[in-house]
Nucleic acid binder design. Structure first.
Length: 286
DNA sequence: AAGTGTATCAACCGCCTTCCC
DNA sequence: AGGGAAGGCGGTTGATACACT
């Protein structure tokens, strides 16, 4: 432990020694915090806690504000699009919850972490494999994420209005209609693209998400990522998978031994229909 | 209806890194 | 450059809701 860390431990211990409240926040405390921040703004949390008359640590105030009281915080079920984003961004950045949360407006790092631990890790546990293993990552990337894309497409197709979820860092663009035409499903990040997107425009792939683009004729797009998409059997009409026995789809993957018999159909992350779908696509001997 | 098990999530702790004075 | 404060993260806990028997 370095000197800086040691100094902070001392600071934390001083917090412990003070007469500070812990546990669930009361309505009165929430009001104090909200009113104070509305007047004076965020920042300098330790002094804020004191000045607002709260017997809480600055850290506790910050957490309460960021995770619960902030006006733009979103609560409730994680949508399909958000599930997809979490899987995609986690595959890119790992457990950088805060960074991932920046791309999911209104969602907090704590919420995303909880989602990951309670849902995703649960599935890994049910599959009897490590959540960080190649097998599990491959399953997410090549099975669950494409499956999520299908669901997103289906719900968008059933919707009468265009669904465009804007984020602070980019846009997740969904089609209003489909019918054998190109589908524009993309996540546009501002950090790596200058491309603007609309539901009417074919969007150039700008991130790893290009691997999950659908209905894009390979020959019609110069980007090499589309070729990669075709390699995983995912660039054709309405995204049915290519049977691994007749294609190179499962190159480098090894699903069957640990999918066999596992109950992975227990919640909305991968429901019973999805499990049946996996069985059909890969001819499991279960 | 009551008891028990399980899932979810807010909140915390400890450690570490980053920021800023 | 050094040190304190703030922020980020992994891990955990406890309360509550819900499902199941």
């Amino acid at each position: 432990m370095d000197v800086k860390a040691k100094g902070n431990v001392q600071s934390d211990q001083q917090d412990d020694q003070m007469d500070l409240r812990r546990g669930p926040w009361t309505v009165e405390e929430d009001l104090k915090l909200v009113n104070y921040i509305a007047t004076y703004g965020e920042g300098r949390w330790n002094s804020l806690a004191h000045d607002a008359g709260l017997k809480r640590t600055g850290k506790s105030c910050r957490l309460r504000w960021l995770n619960y009281l902030r006006p733009d915080v979103r609560r409730g079920n994680i949508t399909l699009e958000e599930q997809f984003m979490i899987l995609e961004l986690h595959s890119r950045w790992g457990n950088r919850w805060s960074k991932i949360a920046q791309h999911l407006p209104g969602r907090t790092d704590n919420e995303i972490k909880n989602y990951w631990r309670t849902r995703v890790q649960k599935h890994a546990k049910q599959l009897k494999c490590d959540v960080n293993s190649k097998q599990f990552k491959d399953t997410m990337r090549y099975l669950w994420m494409p499956r999520l894309v299908e669901k997103i497409q289906a719900s968008a197709a059933n919707s009468t209005t265009t669904t465009v979820a804007s984020t602070t860092a980019g846009q997740f663009v969904m089609p209003q209609e489909f019918g054998g035409k190109r589908v524009t499903l993309s996540y546009i990040t501002t950090e790596n693209s200058s491309t603007s997107a609309s539901s009417e425009t074919q969007v150039s792939p700008v991130s790893d998400l290009s691997n999950y683009y659908v209905n894009v004729p390979v020959n019609d797009n110069p980007n090499p990522d589309y070729f990669q998409a075709s390699q995983i059997g995912y660039s054709h009409q309405y995204s049915s998978f290519i049977n691994p026995s007749t294609n190179y789809y499962n190159n480098g993957m090894d699903f069957q031994p640990w999918l066999d018999g596992a109950d992975i159909a227990s919640d909305n992350f991968l429901n019973s229909d999805d499990f049946l779908f996996l069985q059909q696509q890969f001819n499991f001997n279960v």
